[in-house]
Design a protein around this nucleic acid. Sequence first.
DNA 1: CTGTGTGCAAAGCTTTTGCACTACT
DNA 2: AGTAGTGCAAAAGCTTTGCACACAG
Lengths: 143, 143
Amino acid sequence: MHSTPASAQNTKDAIPALLQDHGISPTAQRVEIAMILLSERQHLSADQVLKRLDEHGAAVSKATVYNTLGLFVERSLVRQVIVDSTKAFYDSNVEAHHHFYNADDGTLTDVDAAEVPIEQLPRVPEGTFAEAVDIVIRIRNTT
Amino acid sequence: MHSTPASAQNTKDAIPALLQDHGISPTAQRVEIAMILLSERQHLSADQVLKRLDEHGAAVSKATVYNTLGLFVERSLVRQVIVDSTKAFYDSNVEAHHHFYNADDGTLTDVDAAEVPIEQLPRVPEGTFAEAVDIVIRIRNTT
DNA sequence: CTGTGTGCAAAGCTTTTGCACTACT
DNA sequence: AGTAGTGCAAAAGCTTTGCACACAG
């Protein structure tokens, strides 16, 4: 392996630093996974991440993909979106936003938080505080 | 087993009729499951339903519980609530409402839809229509 | 007697756990 | 050399599928 100039590429070299900023040691597998997921705004299941790793020739085990994605969520590098009872999606967009979930084809689409203004939140139960508000708008195809 | 007057108990005898109203033939297993889930407003996982069936001495297989709950959802007898990526909850309350999800203990609490007024919904993508809006407010214990 | 519909064992997913191994101190 | 942390094979858990059986027409 030969090194590349630090400033030449932004994405490739920024990833390790980004991981460290979030308290994650940038190992080879983690950088691979982060590069795939963070390369653009997208919603991928663990399975899809694994498939892309294979395509890129990176051999990472299923368990590591799951554990790494879990770690990324814990460290707020990505968001976990739950819409399907049998599969979790990982969202590279961590800014406040909501989702359309197309129940016919299983795809997710972002909705800016500003497009769903909520007048007020209900009072939370005694002894608790609100951590997040997730809105999912289930849509179907008219055809 | 001895029969009870038809009008004496409301719940027990109303269930078969309710199932039929929703186009579901009221077999023994389905009535058992419906009685457990619909006896009161609650959020149960498939697993919890199975456990209660066992406690009531009703022997119904795991597969039948899953398939029956899926059928109930399809026929709008109950609602499926998705908050945990590894488990689905079934909600006996089918009226418009949302949920608090306590991430610390995994419990769900109803929130009346009127308590979360939404000014407007975003325009849905071309060729689709909104089927439902689910709001989940994740809460944590302050302690 | 035929066909539709039901219930369940077994199979198929997704996700977690426990342990060998690595890489720093 | 010791120790904290990483990656993965195997195990566990949730859900679906495929088929034998039951029941209505």
